[in-house]
Write a protein that binds this DNA or RNA. Structure first.
Lengths: 172, 172
DNA sequence: TTAATAAAAGATAAAAAAATCCTTTATTAA
DNA sequence: TTAATAAAGGATTTTTTTATCTTTTATTAA
């Protein structure tokens, strides 16, 4: 084992990013943060590049770019090539929720199917957690559908919530 | 950030043990099913082998055996080597909940830490999903702690719930 | 029309999770 | 005491997820 502090600090950062996931894959966490960040910029009529997005949400740029591609294909955000291009969201995206984002990246594993993996789990033939999972899923659904992404972006702009850990510091 | 090598080394080790997943990793799903199955057999005073467990819960036997090892190390079930040996649960395990099982296999990322991966997310500096995630976690916690594993096993024995998809067929 | 820009796409690499295989150790019943 | 049994442990392989790098395509401003 390498005891060099610089190396270890880097390891902590790296491993912290890769692991410790709640119920979203790393990719869908980046997607959620990206899409909210894009909205914050679109609300000030600015398109943003993949590079800026990756830097702002503290995610690997190239990986973020791939995720942004998926989001564009799923029509969750828009994109424009060339100078002054970038990613954006507009009125045509205002109905989209975080649930759509998670489904576009992770599929609907989080919203349907047996929580223990039984192919035929149902009300009639439930797994031991079936009815409890139904309840938990209601909560997850409401978490990801009650506020529009635009509103979440407004809350970030107001400083009520954050996408990074700058804890109040003012950006240049 | 703490730059002390001893601290960082410990962090690397600790965080490295955490595994990521959606709600449950494949491993913890097998663990949940295994531990309930072991209880159903222990309630009829039968020890069960890894081979039988794997077959019954429809999981790879060798992988299941590895998971069972972890569960034994975490004192979630007991084991005995040799002829007539196998895995079992007894009174000493009756206080253990599925939450303990999930924590033993997946770590506690499901129960703590920022859902979007921000290192300093808190009530004071919340991520956009912070308060909603707190609510969802309450539901997950209750799902995994209200019924004892023994009771879940009783429900399986009664045929109220199932660990496989045999949908009512009688085992030989 | 062209040079610069930025997304899209493709290919590859690295890391982690899932799964398998083989050897060792403990136990017990004959 | 020994042969059979079953868990424990170690090493390796496969698959999936995460991450990176390079090339191509579209756009636009000069």
């Amino acid at each position: 084992m390498n005891f060099d502090p610089a190396f270890l600090l880097n390891e902590v950062t790296r491993i912290s990013r890769i692991k410790s996931s709640f119920m979203f894959s790393q990719a869908s966490k980046y997607a959620i943060k990206s899409v909210i960040y894009v909205w914050t910029k679109s609300l000030e009529d600015r398109k943003v590049g993949a590079k800026e997005i990756g830097a702002e949400i503290e995610a690997p740029e190239a990986f973020t770019a791939k995720i942004l591609q998926q989001l564009v294909r799923a029509k969750i955000i828009g994109s424009q090539k060339g100078p002054n291009g970038g990613f954006y969201a507009d009125e045509s995206h205002s109905k989209i929720t975080l649930k759509d984002v998670v489904r576009a990246i992770d599929g609907d594993h989080l919203f349907s199917g047996c929580g223990l993996g039984l192919p035929k789990c149902s009300e009639k033939n439930p797994c031991p957690l079936h009815f409890e999972i139904v309840k938990v899923r209601k909560g997850i659904d409401s978490m990801l559908t009650t506020k529009s992404i635009r509103l979440l972006a407004v809350e970030v702009i107001k400083g009520e919530t954050q996408l990074t850990d700058l804890t109040g510091s003012v950006e240049s």
